[in-house]
């Protein structure tokens, strides 16, 4: 009997080992999403997958895992009748999968966003749009990158700390086009320390210090309200749209996890 059982046990053990290996090394595995994240963020609400309402664009292979450019494109116009009211960005295999959520309004004009994120290991990145009628739509992309969250802090941390809280808006051209979506970029100088960048020699971890909330308004009307986490790269940088109906003031208010707040504003002329 023994001579017969042993090879079988070996086969079984090898089989299990192999299947675990295959599972562990399959980078396209979506277990983190289907097993936990989906329910954690969206419960059992149905989510339609595809690029009809929202589309996420990310590089398949990232050049710098701490600086991965991500673009989200809204495929429906932001009208008062129907618009994308929230976009959630999830990076499945990051230590903190929730990267950011953005609340948008018809005043946003277009639900187009761009930013730079940290990617810690091969992962799916997904953008989930919630339209004003409460439906969910998801677009995803696979990104090959690793070490983005534990990657060394920016080469010149001293310089980064010195300009912490500095902000600026950048717009295409000097003047805004009234009644149309205008592209604008908000640059925030903040090291966005992840809390995962360990000092191996002193065994100290640089405490997390990152931007938690970004509010952009035009003449008091919200354009973009974001909740952000450590996956957003150092010196957070957001591109988005807004529709000015007259000359006015774009204003950004930022709060970080240590409670520090910063504001910046820019006059928009027509």
């Amino acid at each position: 009997m023994q001579t017969g059982i042993l090879p079988r046990i070996w086969l079984l053990v090898t089989g299990i080992a192999l299947s675990t290996l295959v599972q562990a090394t399959d980078p396209q595995d979506e277990g983190a999403w289907t097993g936990a994240l989906r329910a954690q963020y969206f419960g059992d609400r149905p989510i339609e997958e595809g690029n009809g309402v929202i589309e996420l664009t990310a590089p398949y292979r990232a050049e710098d895992p701490a600086l991965v450019p991500i673009q989200i494109t809204g495929k429906i116009p932001q009208t008062a009748e129907k618009y994308i009211r929230r976009i959630t960005l999830i990076i499945d295999n990051n230590p903190v999968p929730f990267a950011a959520s953005f609340d948008l309004t018809p005043a946003s004009g277009k639900a187009d966003l761009a930013m730079r994120v940290r990617v810690n290991s091969y992962t799916h990145v997904r953008a989930i749009a919630e339209t004003s009628d409460g439906k969910l739509y998801m677009s995803k992309a696979f990104v090959k990158a690793s070490g983005g969250c534990s990657a060394p802090l920016g080469a010149d941390l001293d310089a980064a700390m010195a300009r912490l809280g500095k902000m600026k808006f950048r717009m295409d051209g000097d003047k805004a086009v009234l009644g149309q979506p205008n592209a604008v970029q908000l640059l925030v100088s903040h090291p966005n320390i992840t809390g995962l960048q360990m000092d191996q020699i002193s065994r100290l971890i640089k405490p997390a210090h990152y931007v938690e909330e970004v509010k952009v308004s035009f003449d008091g009307t919200p354009v973009l309200t974001a909740r952000t986490d450590i996956a957003i790269s150092a010196d957070p940088n957001f591109r988005f749209y807004f529709v000015p109906d007259k000359a006015g003031e774009l204003k950004a208010e930022i709060r970080d996890n240590l409670g520090k707040t910063f504001t910046a504003s820019q006059t928009v002329t027509d």
Partner: peptide, 13 residues
């Protein structure tokens, strides 16, 4: 020294 300390864990992996 600071650069080594910050990068060592990442470099070891």
């Amino acid at each position: 020294a600071q650069a080594m300390a910050l990068r060592a864990p990442y470099y070891i992996d």
